[in-house]
Amino acid sequence: MEKIVIVDYSLGNLRSVSKAVEHVATDAEVVVSDDARVIHDADRVVFPGQGAARDCMAAISDHHVERAVREAAASKPFLGICMGLQVLMDHSEENGGTDLLGMMPGKVQHFSGDFKGDNGLPLKIPHMGWSQVEHAIDHPLWRGIADHSRFYFVHSYFVVPEESDLIAATTEYGERFTCAIARDNLFAVQFHPEKSADDGLQLLKNFVNWKL
């Protein structure tokens, strides 16, 4: 039986993620763990996360999961969600500047707040709600998901990859930004597939069935 590990480093609520993965991975064992060996032995790894960048990096360090996460991100199907996308980059503007894992070239920046919505009011931050995701590439994780489908977002910062070939999808909130990146065995999204109804479940299902 395949083992899917959801990396737990005490940041935020993993129940939604684990329940959603269990819902689609009927033939796999879904485990929530911060144990480096368990992560090492996993067939697939989901790397969620929420909260502030500095707290996130501190928690990764406190739980001694950095090496295991780096190894997984380099070798097996790996899905980053929300902060689990952002911390893969080099550096974030958040908390007065925070160094991240530096696995993907690029930075994380705050919404400028200069944009106005349809009603003429300034756009609210955080970006909270359902936005359209425009595919930048064809990818097994987009299978069965129509281009421009809506996914649920909650965030104030977004990633800016240095290499455009990392971009798997973009969305628009005042400005257009990267909401998914892909490279080899790695896929990471800013939105929350575990909270995005049927399209979100489809993405998770695609991840569970993803053959490298």
């Binding site: 919505g117 349809d118 756009l123 970006h127 709600g129 359902w130 936005s131 359209q132 421009h148 809506r150 628009e172 909130y173 005042g174």
Partner: peptide, 8 residues
């Protein structure tokens, strides 16, 4: 296109 208004 931007953010959808939500019904709760």
């Amino acid at each position: 296109m931007g953010l959808a208004k939500r019904i709760i």
